[in-house]
Amino acid sequence: MKQFDKSVGVSSSANGEAFEVETRVKSNDEVNGEYRLLILDAPQKVLDCQPGQFFHLLCPVTSQNAPYLRRPMSIYGFYPEKSELHFLYKVTGEGTRALAELLPGDTFNVLGPLGKGYSIRDDWQQLLLVARGVGLATLAPLAQEAQRRGRKLTAICSARSPEVLMSVELFREMGAEVITVTDAEGSSGMENIKAIIQDKIGAGEVDALYTCGSNRMLTLLQEIGAEHGIPGEIALEQQMACGLGMCQCCVRSFRRNNQIVHERVCREGPVFDMQEAMGW
């Protein structure tokens, strides 16, 4: 029988899937007005991740904020060589406000890596992703993996104004062709994004589509995917309690073989087949 590791106060996994571990905050700085980048010093065992996977974060209880449940957060970057785990987050409520209070040197409990990430099939040589806002966080590791596997990547980055277009540099560094669209310039409408994607498809430059989060983007990419017979994947969000598949609170509906099935975003997802996902 495997022995429980008493020395660190947390146990290691019985069969090596996910771990509840204490990490140390290296930095937690504002990236621009809306987003913060949290960099953790994390043990090696949690740094074997797939793009699209997430961690379940135990946000601290502070004098101002007392979150109770964990908060799910996509892996923005994982760097085993530096022992670093990165999250890019938007402060929206009590949990993320508490997260913003973390200071360098603080210990921080995380659970992960969790869920099923994006896949890049062998015949998907040319990838196209559409990311908006904090969705960049979810898709950045996919860009890195695409580069590692020598796939061509086009990244359409959408934001409110050019000032808040993040990660453009990051995607460029990973060898992606970056196309930016913004509300301020009036270029982020669904019709324009559709035209851009169809141009790329017309030029024979798209084997697979990827996105995350938004209902409108799901509808658009489903339509384009169905019309041109291009497969795709989407990372979905849903409120979570356990993050491990135990409580059944994070289900969403999917269309499969002419039936509606319910799957857990934390376990069967968060990444799902684009055509099977249903709008909400």
Binding site: M1, S11, L244
Partner: peptide, 30 residues
């Protein structure tokens, strides 16, 4: 089982089941 040693527990208690297949409640569920 992906996180702890299940053999350490005094008993295993499973989620309530019904005879028939059934769906759950609408979300948000927590």
């Amino acid at each position: 089982a992906g996180v702890i040693d299940m053999n350490a527990l005094g008993a295993h208690v499973t989620k309530t089941i019904t005879y028939e297949k059934r769906g759950g409640n609408p979300t948000p569920r927590v």
